[in-house]
Design a protein around this nucleic acid. Sequence first.
DNA 1: TTTGTAAATTGATAATTATCAATTAGTTTT
DNA 2: AAAACTAATTGATAATTATCAATTTACAAA
Lengths: 233, 233
Amino acid sequence: MKPNKYNNQANKEAVNHCQQCLMRPISLFSDLQESDFDLLRQPINIIELEAEEILYKEKQVIRYLYTVRSGLLKQVRYLDDGSYRIVRLLRQGDIAGIEALNNTFYKQHTLVLQKASLCQIPIKNIKALDQKSTCLYKPLMARWQKIQQDADLWITEFSVGHSKKRMANLLIYLAGENDTDFFFLPSREDIGALLAIRTETASRIIAEFKRQGCLQTKGNYAKINFSKLKQFY
Amino acid sequence: MKPNKYNNQANKEAVNHCQQCLMRPISLFSDLQESDFDLLRQPINIIELEAEEILYKEKQVIRYLYTVRSGLLKQVRYLDDGSYRIVRLLRQGDIAGIEALNNTFYKQHTLVLQKASLCQIPIKNIKALDQKSTCLYKPLMARWQKIQQDADLWITEFSVGHSKKRMANLLIYLAGENDTDFFFLPSREDIGALLAIRTETASRIIAEFKRQGCLQTKGNYAKINFSKLKQFY
DNA sequence: TTTGTAAATTGATAATTATCAATTAGTTTT
DNA sequence: AAAACTAATTGATAATTATCAATTTACAAA
């Protein structure tokens, strides 16, 4: 191996990728100065994953941290009885493996729900940046705060009250800003794991919402009728 | 006012308090060097709050950040229907108002459950430290990570499955390390708000646990019989 | 101690959700 | 296209939880 040459090239690539990346304003690297980019020694790759693929498993040694460019991922905890609960969804701009800076092992299983594109950032780069510069400080703090806010949302919107109401909350969340577009609708099993209800219950509610015209589905995609959904909200 | 004199005294107090504090190893200031303490211009007070007292409300302007020295606090979100959900409990070493660094307003209501003692740290001190030193970086990151882990716990242990199982999880959590001691047992209403069940359901389960010898209560305090509780776990 | 008040418990019933089984729809493989 | 498989839906019933009302207990005030 020729470490120097390799590293230089990696660095150039990183600079090219990241400095010009459309995602940069919302990425972890938003505050990086030109000189900071020199600290990125290992190559930053963009990886594409299909639905069902595993990004990483709990207790695996952390080697990368990921920024979601597009798609949808789930973070999962398995329960004693073999079932699972989805504790978080990751969308554009979210980070997977943020625990990298304090830990050596990932804390959750992270899997792809909807075909995803991710920046794969070697943890060594992060640590190098972290030692020499404070440029990661603000973006990281902002991510952590978002994680907390999302968790609060999860606890209040997706875990309390009647399951129809929780489903309505979830659908509105999944629809995001653009109410009117089709969005990815997880399987009934995953919806169950999101809302802490059984697959059958999830299916019944979705089916009823469809009958009532609150929801329209096309394969794995769906569109909501916001005003009709309000009655459950 | 005589800002200089005041500040100097405040600083001395802060140094005395914080440098020698028994809590320091687990506090936010664990990494502070002597010189860093000079940056603490505003007085750091220890405040004592009785049960039911409000530490702060959501949307209030952030002026302080708090470290829990002892006692128990709840962070609460109110729902549309007037009910509330407890999204987090704060115990020794936890921080209230950690969002201070990214925001101007508190994000949750925070109230005292069990008589609490707190360090009241002016946000100006934190910001001063933050600008001149990196000593808060690691402790803050560790706190954020703990918040995430606690949230995951909340979502998986306190929000999924039968309410008896969730109650067992909660009691074990409240008992903490020392299974054998009495610990603070929240009101049935608060337990309901913790587990997303009705007050009456919480009461029924507690009463049944008592009848079965899983739980022994004395006023607001309780002790668990771990092995008997396992049947619900 | 008595009185008043809030919290906890219990009962009866309704509503919701889980469970288990069967059927239908949708995909993929051959 | 047929077969094989998986996901989604639906039905029937059991179990759990909510709801509303009443009672008991615990505790503070007079």
